[in-house]
Amino acid sequence: MLDNKILKVKNTGQCIGCYSCMIGCSTIVHKDHSLLMSGIAVKTSGGYPGRMVVDICRGCIEPKCVSCCPTEALKKRAGGGVRFNKDKCNGCSNCVEGCVIGGMQFNYDEKIPIPCIQCGICVSRCPHEVLSMEARL
């Protein structure tokens, strides 16, 4: 865990759509080969002739997903973003609805959110320096 630093999309235009970041997140953090279990989502805007885009948790200082959570399963993290306590989660998915940029993914099988824990695994797996961990200025 990189204290106080949050995940940033530094160079969107350098993304080749390899999904290495998603593979890192889903397999190392969420212990599943399914890329639906990734807290970071790579996709295209306008299909492949368009451009690659990367949807991430933006590490809000006052996260809406936290204020939406009725059970305090999500709590604010120092420096931005959230901490997640699975045991307190009731699976309501309010956090997913609450995030206006779609930064929170959801595991519909287990009915729990897939929050970004700002661990930086995705950054270490990115071969093209698209991502970085930085302190919020």
Binding site: G13, I16, G17, C18, Y19, S20, Y48, R51, P127, H128
Partner: peptide
């Protein structure tokens, strides 16, 4: 103008 990759390939 750009390079893209198949899903799961870090080469592109």
């Amino acid at each position: 103008i750009k390079k893209v990759a198949c899903s799961g390939c870090p080469i592109g």
